[in-house]
């Protein structure tokens, strides 16, 4: 039972960042919200691996973290005008 409270708190956080990503006045606001959302989602994926008791799900969290990092860097370069 205790896992559902932790997952509920984190999902609430994801929803808040999602609202900011929809509201955000500028593109930079949206990108900041999405960047935080990916980090929160990584933690959520680790918790899901605990819930389903599958070791292999941790790999998904790791790959997701790597790809989110690359995506953020690419968008930042694009906003700067260097891409």
């Amino acid at each position: 039972m205790s896992w559902i409270i932790a997952i509920a708190i984190i999902v609430l956080g994801v929803v808040l960042t999602l609202i900011r990503a929809m509201l955000g006045p500028t593109a930079a606001d949206r990108m900041v919200a999405v960047d935080s959302m990916t980090t929160i989602t990584t933690a959520l994926l680790v918790l899901l691996a605990l819930y389903f008791k599958r070791y292999i799900y941790l790999d998904i969290a790791l790959v997701y973290a790597v790809l989110a990092f690359v995506a953020t860097l690419a968008v930042a370069r694009y906003m700067e005008g260097g891409l």
Binding site: T26, V32, D35, T39, A65, T72, L73, E80
Partner: peptide, 19 residues
């Protein structure tokens, strides 16, 4: 996460100032 998160935030902050 500890190594990459500050870097991506630094890139975003710099990009948003320059844009």
């Amino acid at each position: 996460i500890l190594l990459t998160n500050p870097i991506s935030s630094h890139a975003l902050g710099r990009a948003s100032y320059r844009s």
